[in-house]
Design a protein around this nucleic acid. Sequence first.
DNA 1: TAAAAACATTGAACAAGGTCAATAAATAAC
DNA 2: GTTATTTATTGACCTTGTTCAATGTTTTTA
Lengths: 192, 192
Amino acid sequence: MKDNLRQYVSKSISLSDRELDEFCDLFQSSTVKKKSFLLKEGEVCEFEGFVTKGLFRVYRVHSNGVEQILYFAIENWWVTDLDSFTNASVSKLHIQALEDSEVLLISRKDKEYVYEHIPKIEKLFRVMTQKTHIALQQRMMDNLSKTADQLYLDFIEKYPQLSQRLNNLQIASYLGISHEFLSRIRKKIFIK
Amino acid sequence: MKDNLRQYVSKSISLSDRELDEFCDLFQSSTVKKKSFLLKEGEVCEFEGFVTKGLFRVYRVHSNGVEQILYFAIENWWVTDLDSFTNASVSKLHIQALEDSEVLLISRKDKEYVYEHIPKIEKLFRVMTQKTHIALQQRMMDNLSKTADQLYLDFIEKYPQLSQRLNNLQIASYLGISHEFLSRIRKKIFIK
DNA sequence: TAAAAACATTGAACAAGGTCAATAAATAAC
DNA sequence: GTTATTTATTGACCTTGTTCAATGTTTTTA
């Protein structure tokens, strides 16, 4: 079950078998049924998760009740509320499974321990955070400059397999547009 | 001149005097006149910079000619194109001084060297990248959910000293709205 | 397999914000 | 100090996307 994680780590850094075992042993597996929550607003996020099966959405509920999806996490992606997890602060986010899912969880304490103990892991996460930061910068620039049509087309082109697994409510909420407007966009696009 | 940098590092991690000297010696100081560029689109970003004086804007020029500001950097902030610097790829960004400025620059090679040589520095930058990532997540959610009025009010409240040093063209470009609309917002707000 | 729930589509009215053009005010350059 | 240049304001009109409500369609659930 932890094969995915082993593979993921090995792709980025070279650890001895022993280090790799030690790292992976710090994770505990958890199954999460569709529609149930890994984290709810108001809680403190005590885990960082590596998804081995299924699909999660990480989202915020605004004061007017509107849900805004920050990101999705599928197989071989990490899922956490970075702010709440690193600062042990109260979370403003929800993390919910959109399919029956499985995830490997590491606690804050164990992660800090492993940073001290296996410095290459610190490198792994530094590089990872850099990559997600670059992607987020790109996404923010796109959101501010591109039209909704283009955002949608880019999304289904960039994440073809993921977009198959999502309904239009989820996609609209990720793109920051209303699902009614997404429906109109789809009509316009697919008629052409 | 490197006192700011020494202080900045010391606040986050504890290095020996020797390590601190070694780290700071890798930087070379550079003065940048108002309106001149530290980086232009099409170049490869060969530096990461620590601003000791002045003000920079990091921005992209979209195909229609519209400028979108990704972020500003003032004293004690870092400035680089993270994507271009880490991947040695061609930059899509411009980095321009908005005031007469001074910046301490470290090269890609030296930064990689220091990661190997002083692991605490790796920690420093991991934590730093995490923080900026959290801030960017917040900014993206705000951009997607808040009205332009609110974005502007939040900006001048969050960065009071910075917003004093910027004209409304720059602020509008950062918020992703037209400067004409910002002008109307200001009228509406300050009349109340 | 029937009822309930969730999801998708469509119309009509509306709001937020953009574009273009003109003018005024403030800075910078000489 | 007086032009140039940059920045700010304002008006009129336009576009993109929202809201609300109704209806149809699919998927769950019992």
